[in-house]
Every structure is written in C-alpha cells, then in structure tokens.
C-alpha cells in the first residue's frame, strides 16, 4: 500500500512541477506571430520550392503579411488563383501576373549537332560546363547531363533519350525557376505561357559568329538578322550574333519562323499551317484588342 502511495505522490509531484515549468515557459518565452501568416501559409501549395524567392512557403507567407502589398510577389506554383486567395486573406489587391512556363532554348539534338568528343566526367552539367565546351562544337548549347531534371521538384522536365535534350511538360511546369538556376548555360528561360499556350521563341543561345555556329549545329541561330527585318512589331533584337524575341512585344504572327534559314525559331501549340498563308496580318491587327496582354494569332 505504502509503495503505491509513494509512487502516486512522487509521480504526481513530478507532474505538477513539470506543469508549472511548462506554463511559465509558455508565458515567458511566448513569441507573437501574426495569425494571418498561418492562414496565408495554409492556402499556399506547400511545395517549398523557393520559386517565389523566399525560403519556403512560410517564408513567403511572412513576407506577404509584412510587406503590406502584394506588388512583385507571386507564388509561381499556385499562380493567380492562389495569389487572389492570399489577397483576400490580407485584404489587399491581387497584382495581376501572367502565367509562365520554362522554355528550353536549345534544339541541338543528336542529329542536328554532331558529337565531336566524349565527356567522361561526372554526369552533372555544372561539372561538364567547368570541364570544357561540351561534346559538340557548340560551347553554348545544352550539355545533356540533366541538372534541370534533378532540379525540378514537380517532375515536369525529363530528358528525351533520342534528342539528348530536356523536355518540359507544360501542364506540370509551375515556372518556379529551379531549372533556370540549375542550368549552368542559362538555356532555360521563363516565358509567358501566351494565349492558348502559343509561343514563338528562338531556340538557341549561341553567341558565336554565324560561320562557327553553322559548323557546330544545323539549327543554331547564326545572327543573320532576317527575322529582325521581317518582324513588324520590333519584337526581335539581335545582339552578339543571337536573335531574341521579346515575348511582351511578339504578336505570334510566325513570320520570323518561316523566315529563319536555320529553323532556329520555334512556334509551339499552333495548329498546322494552311498550305498557303494568305491571311494578311494587317487585317487581323485591326480586330486585335488594344491591351498589350492579349495576343492574337493571325492564322487562327
């Protein structure tokens, strides 16, 4: 009987003391956290990808609450819907943003870009890039070791074994930008998804002179400038022997795609061309909405 009594009393005493200590500690060391941070974090996707530029979803939530404005803040994974919910919680206005997608700007597949050497080091682009210009004659193009694939948390990029190039699955890609950071050659770019997912871009980042590029790759941009001339919207610039299409100025007319002698300009998600493109872009332009955000495809 005594034994039980002693056990009950001693355990009870320990419990009591612990309770007091815990109570004091919880009052004394309590940290006030804005309850809205938790609420905002709840609506975020919890992918913790860091695509927003903050350390994880809770970091982003804290930044949103503290900033008092959602200017320049975007959760690339959740996109506009999530940002609107965040805005509702905080009583702020959601800042409009376009959905983006990762675009691989290299088309130097095995058949277009002959391999001259064999890389025998660790299969990491970062290390291959530090070793030399790569297995092909092009020192700017994709190295094909798949750093972008391992950087993607969403499984949106995979290597195509036939071309040796990465391919982005548009539906899964959240435009978090992890692959952009992972690519040592800065080939991947986040571009606006475009109307009906239609995009026109230069699929090359080679800055060598035309003759050098042509020798290394059949589909490299040689900086001839034909696309610049044909573009009616000043969307294309030529710098360091490389053309670049500004997605905000491009009207998706696809003239440059036809003009490019190398086939370096790529248009995706367009319906097949009619045998002859008769549609005059100028006519279509008249019906085009004034807003710069809206894009129109003349061949529609």
């Amino acid at each position: 009987m005594d034994l039980i009594l002693v056990a009950v009393i001693s355990l009870g005493a320990i419990g009591l003391v612990s309770a007091v200590v815990l109570f004091v500690a919880s009052k004394k060391f309590a940290v006030y956290e804005d309850p809205r941070i938790g609420k905002v974090a709840e609506v975020l996707p919890q992918a913790n990808c860091g695509g927003c530029g903050y350390p994880g979803c809770s970091g982003f939530a804290e930044a949103c609450v503290k900033a008092g404005s959602l200017e320049g803040k975007l959760c690339p994974v959740g996109g506009q819907p999530v940002m609107e919910r965040v805005a509702a919680i905080l009583g702020l206005d959601a800042v409009a943003s376009e959905p983006k997608v990762a675009v691989v700007r290299c088309n130097g597949s095995c058949e277009h870009r002959p391999r001259m050497t064999r890389y025998d080091g660790v299969k990491l682009c970062a290390i291959a890039n530090a070793t030399y210009g790569g297995e092909t004659g092009c020192t700017f193009g994709c190295l094909g070791c798949g750093d972008c694939v391992s950087a993607c948390q969403f499984g949106a990029i995979r290597m195509n074994p036939e071309t040796g190039l990465p391919e982005v699955d548009e539906d899964i890609c959240t435009a978090c930008g992890a692959c952009v950071k992972a690519c040592p050659r800065h080939i991947i770019e986040l571009r606006p998804k475009g109307k009906k997912n239609r995009r026109v871009y230069v699929s090359c980042v080679n800055k060598d002179k035309g003759a050098v590029t042509r020798k290394a790759c059949e589909v490299g941009c040689i900086g001839c400038g034909k696309c610049v001339k044909v573009c009616e919207f000043d969307a294309i610039t030529l710098e360091n022997n490389l053309a670049y299409i500004d997605p905000n100025k491009c009207r998706l007319c696809r003239k440059c795609e036809q003009e490019c002698p190398q086939g370096a300009i790529i248009a995706v998600n367009f319906p097949p061309r009619k045998p002859k493109t008769e549609a005059a872009p100028t006519e279509q332009l008249a019906t085009r909405p004034a807003s710069g955000e809206e894009k129109q495809n003349p061949n529609e």
Binding site: G133, T139, V212
Partner: peptide, 11 residues
C-alpha cells in the same frame, strides 16, 4: 582578330 578554342575548351 577573332576567337579560338583554347585549352579551357571555350572560344
């Protein structure tokens, strides 16, 4: 005056 691939493997 142009470019050449040197020992670094780059132009």
């Amino acid at each position: 005056v142009d470019t050449v691939i040197d020992a670094s493997g780059y132009r």
